[in-house]
């Protein structure tokens, strides 16, 4: 037993203490959080815009009077559908690699490439989540807003989206957690995120157990923390229901 403990201690020192190897993990964690955060903002922005386009098209296209507005809506809807199909139909790693090696072949700001790739990917899933939220709101809400004199966009942003957002918060939280974990493929474009950090340590020490378990724990704790945070937010938003 004593020997085993001593062995574990030696492994710990080798993997994390020697040459300050723990810094691969902390630096990697910071980068993972950075990419996740900005990709989340980008994904939410894209997702909400696409959701509004799709929901508007589904709700109002039939009854719209002919004109340039109708044509533009049709085009936007087609673009949105293509975007959703392509993004949801291909693996995120492939999207990341295409972004890095093809679209941004001349740029070497990898962080921005990763944020764009993950953000655009997440946006597709957020769009469908938010759209289902918008569809779940009674159409009387839109009518009430319009009857007071709000225009379509004011009613959407002031009345429909806040309620839709509340309804889909659990699904959005799930998407956020998925995003956080998906950034672990950032290593494919040589970004040193949390997972890549562990990988580098393994390359130096030829010992896989501790670095892998360490990052697994870190991901797990992060996810548990954010789940708790979203739970609190949900309870606060629900205050109007009791």
């Amino acid at each position: 037993m004593k020997e085993w403990l001593a062995g574990q201690k030696a492994l710990f020192v080798l993997n994390f203490i020697n040459d300050d190897r723990w810094r691969y993990l902390t630096d990697g964690l910071v980068l993972t959080l950075e990419i996740t955060f900005f990709a989340l903002i980008l994904g939410l922005t894209i997702g909400i815009i696409i959701a509004i386009i799709r929901a508007t098209h589904d709700n109002a296209y039939e009854t719209m009077s002919p004109g340039p507005g109708k044509v533009i809506l049709k085009l936007l809807n087609i673009v949105s559908k293509v975007y959703l199909t392509v993004i949801r139909g291909t693996p995120v790693v492939v999207q990341l690699l295409i972004m890095y090696y093809i679209i941004f072949a001349t740029s070497n700001n990898k962080i921005i490439v990763a944020v764009l790739a993950f953000g655009i990917n997440s946006g597709a899933y957020v769009a469908e989540i938010v759209r289902s939220g918008i569809m779940s709101i009674d159409k009387g809400q839109m009518e009430a807003g319009r009857s007071l004199g709000f225009n379509y966009v004011q009613t959407m942003t002031g009345i429909i989206i806040p309620q839709a957002f509340k309804n889909v918060l659990p699904a959005l939280a799930n998407e956020f957690i998925t995003l956080l974990k998906e950034t672990s493929v950032s290593g494919y474009i040589a970004l040193q995120d949390l997972t890549k950090g562990a990988y580098i340590i393994i390359g130096r020490t030829y010992s896989a157990f501790m670095p892998l378990i360490a990052i697994a724990l870190i991901y797990l704790i992060l996810v548990m923390f954010f789940t708790w945070l979203v739970g609190r937010l949900e309870r606060r938003l629900r205050s109007s229901d009791h």
Partner: peptide
Amino acid sequence: NKMRQKMGMVFQSFNLFPH
């Protein structure tokens, strides 16, 4: 939108904003 500001409407299902 301007004209609707001068026309109040009350619905069968109230349609208050629950949030």
